[in-house]
């Protein structure tokens, strides 16, 4: 297993955000991590990336916590919410310091800028970027070291239809080449065509886990299955 999340618990004050999350992501497959807003998707990914500390349980990459990886950027490429860049820096300068920290050649920066289609905006300050451009910059940073694992939080958020189609085919290609892809989303329709495995989280608990067919089950679409699984007791949902 490449990514193993085992009985993860996270408490903030008295509030329990994650109560015993367990799932895995396998190589050669795209794993979709689905749930409504505030279900705990980002919290799980933040712990997996060593940004937050778990109250109990573990989230491991190749059996190790993120901070113990020898080459974090070459192992895991991650794009969380937003661009993850200081608004006053240019996109190029942002990627350059990352390349510098990971010991990558500067030419790689131009390559990933080209991959995500930001070559023209390379010298523009990040605060002038649109939401979609910021996402593209975040994805560019994740791809910089050509990692075997990709972890993307809401990757299609803010992307235009063209960008969404691009990321779908791109992620499929990564998985088919034997890489591991974990992505979170609350957009079911966008995901059904991309993912192989599905994990559904609701209020800090896993409510479904399996292949796309298993989770969809008797429902006609993934979306129907998702609502059936997440909205039954959720009277507060709209």
């Amino acid at each position: 297993m490449v990514l193993t999340i085992n009985n993860l618990v996270k408490r903030r004050g008295t509030q329990e955000i994650l109560s015993g999350i367990t799932f895995e992501a396998r190589p050669g497959r795209v794993t979709g991590f689905l749930g409504p807003n505030g279900a705990g998707k980002s919290s799980t990914l933040r712990i997996l990336l060593g940004l937050d500390h778990a109250t109990a349980g573990s989230a491991l990459i190749h059996g190790k916590p993120f901070a113990e990886l020898q080459h974090p950027l070459r192992t895991v490429g991650a794009a969380l919410d937003g661009s993850g860049a200081h608004p006053m820096r240019t996109g190029q300068a942002h990627l350059r310091w990352i390349a510098c920290a990971a010991g990558l050649p500067r030419s790689r920066v131009e390559e990933v800028l080209d991959i995500v289609g930001l070559t023209k905006a390379a010298g523009t300050r990040v605060k002038r970027y649109s939401l979609g451009m910021g996402r593209r910059l975040g994805i560019a940073a994740a791809l910089l070291a050509d990692p075997e694992i990709l972890i993307l939080d809401e990757p299609v958020n803010g992307l235009d239809p063209e960008g969404i189609r691009w990321i779908r085919t791109f992620l499929r290609k990564r998985a088919e080449a034997g890489n591991t892809v974990l992505l979170s989303s609350h957009l079911m329709g966008e995901l059904a065509e991309t993912v192989d495995d599905v994990v559904i989280i609701k209020q800090g608990r896993i409510v479904a886990d399996g292949t796309l067919q298993e989770v969809t089950g008797s429902h006609s679409t993934l979306e129907d299955a998702f609502f059936a699984l997440t909205s039954e007791q959720a009277g507060d949902a709209w």
């Binding site: 990336l49 895991v76 991650a78 990352i98 920290a101």
Partner: peptide, 8 residues
Amino acid sequence: RTTLTVIP
């Protein structure tokens, strides 16, 4: 977030 995923 970027800093800590690059330099944990």
